[in-house]
Amino acid sequence: MSVDVSEVELVRGCLAGEVAYQRLFVERFEGMIFGLCLRMLSRRHDAEDVSQEVFLRAFRNLHRWDGERPLRPWLLTIAANRCRTHLEERGRRPMPTDLQADWLPERTRTDSRDDAEEIQRAFATLRLEYQQCFVLFYQQELSVEEVAQILDCPEGTVKTWLHRARKEMAEYLRKRGLDPQQELNDHSLDLNSDMN
């Protein structure tokens, strides 16, 4: 089956019960859905579970999808809602210690993997709404308008949340000893080496 199947055709095939179309549907969007879930939930196992639930819900409700609107925001809306529900359920349980950044010792810069961990920790300190905004804007590369549609809130609210998320994360990184000038220099060095 061709990978260039249109969204309408893909949905039609899924509704007809065609397993090949269903597999293509999952494979086309699994990276996007799993990425959002992993960022929101911080745990790979939870992210995979919730991703499965998102796809199951999507298949159950595919007949409600408006064919004139893009499929991606619709799926991200389901994923965002499922992540929120999962986090609310998890909120009744104690948070794992690896996400409690207050405990962590002073950061010693080693490699980019540590940077990713620092970003993840900074992200984990944000409020749920800020997290959703941040992931949808930066990772899914959606516009403010699209994020507002997915989260069902005004664009001004999304802008405010994004602003606060940036400030809080930048402040967290500053406290953790991430030197912005050194970071930028390293980044420009990496770019130069890639170009050469």
Partner: peptide, 21 residues
């Protein structure tokens, strides 16, 4: 600081899901 945050976020890659998803 904001610029540095954007650089870090750009490197903040998500590993793909398992093949069994």
């Amino acid at each position: 600081r904001f610029q540095q945050l954007h650089v870090a976020v750009a490197d903040w890659q998500v590993q793909p899901p398992t093949a069994e998803l």
